[in-house]
Amino acid sequence: MKQKTIAPWTTWKAALVEDTALAIDIQNVSLWYGDFQALFEVDLQVKRGSITALIGPSGCGKSTLLRAVNRMNERLGDYVRTTGEIHVLDQDILSDDVELSQLRRHVGMVFQRPNPLPLSIQDNVLFAHRIHRADEKFNKLEEDEIVENALRRVLLWDEVKDRLGREATGLSLEEQQKLCIARLLPVKPTVILMDEPTSALDPKATAALEELIWELHGDYTILIVTHNMAQARRASEETAFMLLGRMVEHGVTEQIFLAPQEEGTADYIEGRYG
């Protein structure tokens, strides 16, 4: 896919309001780390523009499943083997002719510990943009606009607009995590994967992040792993519950929490496992 000049994505409202097309379609995915099978025939469909929470006890394969969607598990080489099918926007992403760089541009990731790069705030926001810009010339005005739009979108602009040249690692954790979301936006991702994005934050920062994530969905499809039941309940439309590498139950959040179909789900939600 050849890239064109990036229009300010704030004007890019995906046509997904009434669209029920799938952003992520995971079918029958199994995954092995060496001889250890971490995922067993997992299915999961995520609608475009929705927020889906992925819950389950520690070690059940949530992060593994998330990394399957941007093929980050492959960093471990032949040691990891994946079978099944994963489609992102109807494209088969496990196919050999998928360019990983393009996939990861469209499928961004936010981590448990905020990990801004040891660069200035501005350079952090522009990092992905610069990587994917390739043939275009440097354009200061364009870059300034990108930085401002991205930071406004994550509600960080007013706090940092006077210190864009400062090291991003000097920000508070909440600001860092917002920055980590902001830096994905300039390349117009479709999907944002979040792996326990608030677990390093205090309750107040957590609430701020949740609000932001809620505000972002619609424009972006969000698949978020969380340990926090209240968070899953508050800040997601659908919830998927995993146990020991299997997808146990997936449905509308309300229903999962009020009337889980599976005993395992009920036990977990009521705190009967860790």
Partner: peptide
């Protein structure tokens, strides 16, 4: 140099070399 920096780069679609040049080597 913390692994988290590399992962951040790779997850944005940076190649190994882009990661080395912009983040790993300077640090």
């Amino acid at each position: 140099v913390p692994m988290a920096f590399r992962e951040a780069c790779w997850n944005m679609g940076a190649t190994r070399w882009q990661t080395i040049r912009t983040v790993v080597l300077p640090n």
